[in-house]
């Protein structure tokens, strides 16, 4: 089911959480709402679910105006950040709950069969007599998903679905959610503040800041053609160097790069740790190394330019570099924006 938001706004007391958001989510798409805390992403998700009502604007499910349809009748599957499993019910009873309270009556055997089917889908068969406290966090999140899917929702909404899990489980569940999505093809909207999660999982990423959409697009679009410095900064580690632009070239104090789109004047260059390389022989921005952090696939060099700007970049594990070394930082690529 296609979802459209038309100029939706929401204010809590004096806090303007969402300020005129318009968004289209195509049927079967997997879309991430990404933003820092307070950017309005969860509020948007809750408005789509019907757990909050929009002060302004409309929300359409297909062609139907769903703005004022209460959550109970909206037909969404909502997965909460902290699972919200019913602690006094077993896993099986949790999954069956939506079918038991449904207006559409099902026979007991029917419900049981469907519960079994859903638990197999989320790879939890055999655990249906456990209570939520007796299973792990990752398993709980999968029960929550099975419970949401049990009511055959038109849309699946997930609020920070993996936020409370440790990194390994999170990565595994991410892959697994992708599989479930491609198997069921259900329109899915999820909220996250984790850039990696959004980029790994979503067909399209919607980046929010202060209640507004700052950019939306495929992971390739938002990473390679960021529209603003905020998007660059938010999507990952970055270094900022001030630059001066003249005649389509930006000078970064030792290195210059093409800046065809910028007018002459001051600019900011944003450089990912992988956009920089280290050279001892010359060419580039003169810098000295302050420290090196060894990581699994690379070494993170913490350096400072002779102009006093801090820089962080990655070099291959074999590169022998240590604190106190002097050399040159070379720029492979950069994102340039007119100075703020």
């Amino acid at each position: 089911m296609k979802i459209s938001l038309k100029n939706v706004a929401k204010t809590f007391q004096t806090f303007r959480a969402v300020r005129g958001v318009s968004l289209e989510i195509e049927s079967g798409e997997l879309v991430a709402l990404l933003g820092p805390s307070g950017s309005g992403k969860t509020t948007i998700l809750r408005m789509v679910a019907g757990l909050e009502y929009a002060d302004e604007g409309q929300i359409f499910f297909g062609d139907e105006d769903a703005t004022d349809i209460p959550v109970r009748e909206r037909g969404v599957g909502f997965v909460f950040q902290h699972y919200a499993l019913f602690p006094h019910m077993t896993v099986g009873e949790n999954v069956a709950f939506g079918m038991k309270v449904s207006k559409k009556k099902r026979s007991k055997a029917d419900i049981e069969a469907r519960v079994g089917e859903l638990l197999r889908l989320v790879k939890l068969d055999g655990l249906q007599d456990r209570f939520p406290n007796q299973i792990s966090g990752g398993q709980r999140q999968r029960v929550a998903l099975a419970r949401a899917l049990a009511v055959d929702p038109k849309v699946l909404l997930l609020d920070e679905p993996f936020g409370a899990l440790d990194a390994n489980v999170r990565r595994e569940l991410r892959r697994w959610l992708r599989e479930i999505h491609s198997e069921l093809g259900i329109t899915t909207l999820f909220v996250t503040h984790d850039q990696e999660e959004a980029l790994d999982l979503a067909d399209r990423v919607v980046i929010l800041d202060e209640g507004r959409i700052v950019q939306e697009g495929t992971p390739a679009q938002v990473t390679r053609q960021p529209k603003s410095a905020f998007v660059v900064r938010f999507l990952g580690d970055t270094n900022r160097l001030s630059a001066s632009v003249a005649n389509g070239m930006a000078d970064l104090g030792g290195a210059s790069i093409a800046a065809p789109a910028l007018a002459d004047g001051k600019a900011d260059a944003y450089l990912r740790p992988n956009d920089l390389t280290w050279s001892t022989t010359g060419g580039g921005i003169p810098a000295s190394v302050e420290g090196v952090l060894d990581r699994t696939g690379s070494r993170r060099v913490i350096a400072v330019t002779d102009r006093g700007d801090p820089l962080e970049f990655d070099v291959a594990p074999e590169v022998a570099v240590k604190a106190g070394d002097r050399g040159f930082v070379q720029i492979a690529r950069a994102q340039l924006f007119a100075a703020e």
Partner: peptide, 12 residues
Amino acid sequence: DLEEAATSLGAS
């Protein structure tokens, strides 16, 4: 959360 979950699943 629990009440919201129940309501979103269609409970009165």
